[in-house]
Each structure stands twice: as structure tokens, then as C-alpha cells.
Amino acid sequence: MVQGFGQIIVQALSLGSLYAILAIGFSLIFGSTRVLNLAHGSFVILAAYIAYFIERYYSVGFIASSIVSSILSLIFLPVLEFIGSRTSTHKESFSLILTFGVALVLQSFYSAMFSSDYRILYSNSTIYNLTKLGLSISSIQLTIILSSLFTIIFLFVMFRKTMTGKALRATIHNDEAALLSGIPVKQMRLLAIGLGCFATGLAGSLYVRVSYVHPAGDIEITLIALLITLFAGRGKIRRVLINAWLFALIETIVSYWCGAKWRELLSSLFIIIVLMGRGEEILNNSSGK
């Protein structure tokens, strides 16, 4: 029983870390630009395709493929900057419509470019057995947990300890006040979008290792990112990881003891509760109120 619970914790940690890594890019971009990016899942899908093809056909490892897909994900920077700068009032509503359009275009583009086949990276994963505890963890699960931890710690240290990070935080909290105090808000936004795109690239290269990639597989990713971000709060990077772990733990425990059908219900309830409890607060904050 205890062993079973230990394994549930391992699975939940791994799943939660994946959720966190999927949400970080979304959270950074939403925090700095107030763009609710419904094309986020499509961006992750592209990064996943890039990682897939690089690893499959050039036989490179995870680090190389994740660097390449992260760098190539920067192509979305101008798109997001354009959407962020085009809309000044009711930014969230405008960005929802615009990015939904971008997601549709990208979905068709992926179908034409990569076909509708389902793709997954099946790299040789080492299984580490902790026999005394009756636990096992794969190298892929470890990679996901460490990657999300590393990304969160990097961003946390940057936000707290560097001048650039502090300026970025100020921009996220109140861009008008930041501008008045001499912070180059536009550059800070570009930096946040760039970091967001980079994190999205990393998310894609991890995602294709644990789940399949498909042109129409973006909606689930966007929903997870949106849910975790709203749950954590705008600009709260550290909370993204903690809340993602918490969400995954509840999901896994409910699935194990009550059955998978309750998982769906739980997720739906969770979305409603988060939107009821925090939706208005987040949107008000983001409007500078």
C-alpha cells in the first residue's frame, strides 16, 4: 500500500513537472504582455515536431534537440510581439480571438507539412528501481522533473537577483509605473516573450517523449497551460511548479482510487473553481486596476 502510494507520488511529480514546463512559457508571455495565447499548444507542437525530426533523422540526443527546438521557437516572438502591441484596451479578449486564429492556421499548416500521423519519441529510457522502497523511475521522468526544476530556479533567481529580472518583474506587475520609473518596458516585454518562446521550445522537446504529437493535439496543452497559469496567478513563476504538482497529484490519486472517469470531472470542476475564484482578480490585475 505504502509502496503503491510512493509510486503514485513519483508519477504525479513527473506529470506535474510536465504540466509546469508546458505552462511556464504561457505564464511568462501572459504576465508580460497580457496576451492570453490560445496558440500556445500549437507552438509547443511545432517545437515537439522539430525535436522529433532532429532526433529521429539526425540521431542527436535530448540536449541538442531541445536547444535547437528552443532557439527555433523564437520565430513566434514577432507574432506575439505583434499581437501584444496591436491591442491596447481589452487586450485579453482581442488576444483570445487573434491567437485562436493563429492556432487554426498553424493546425492546417502542420497537417500539410507533417501529415496527420501520430508521432512519439521512443528513446531508450533507463529504469531506476529503488527496490527497498518498491519504486521505479525512468530516466525520462527524471529529465522532466529536473528540467522543470532547473527552469523554475533559473527564472526565480533571475527575477530576484538580477537588475534585468527586477525590471521584468516591475513590468509584469505594472507596466505604466515601470515606464515612469525609466524601465525600457518594450525591451522587457520582448525579453519575456523570448524567454517564454524558449521555454515553449523546451516543453515541446520534452512533451514528444511522453506523449504523441499530432497537428490537432494543441488544445489539451493550451488548456493545461491556461489552467495552471490562472491557478498560480499572473507573473507567479514559482507557484506554477507547485500548483502543477498539486494538480497532478490530486488527478493521479483520484484516478487511482476512484477511477479515471472521476479525473475528467475533477479537471472540469477545477477549471470552474479557478475561473470563479481567480479569473476576475487576474484580469483586473492585468488591466492595471
Binding site: 506529470l15 489539451e220 493521479t252 487511482y256 477511477g259 479515471a260 475528467e264
Partner: peptide, 20 residues
């Protein structure tokens, strides 16, 4: 016996039960 939504991202709870 378990009913799941197509596109479920994680099957580990079901598989842990299989193991148990």
C-alpha cells in the same frame, strides 16, 4: 475495468492498479 477518455495523457494510475 476502466473507462478512459481517448487522448488521456497519463495511464499510470490504471497501470499501477494492473500491477497491484
Amino acid at each position: 475495468e476502466e473507462k478512459l477518455r481517448p487522448g488521456t495523457p497519463d495511464f499510470s494510475p490504471f497501470l499501477l492498479k494492473c500491477r497491484a
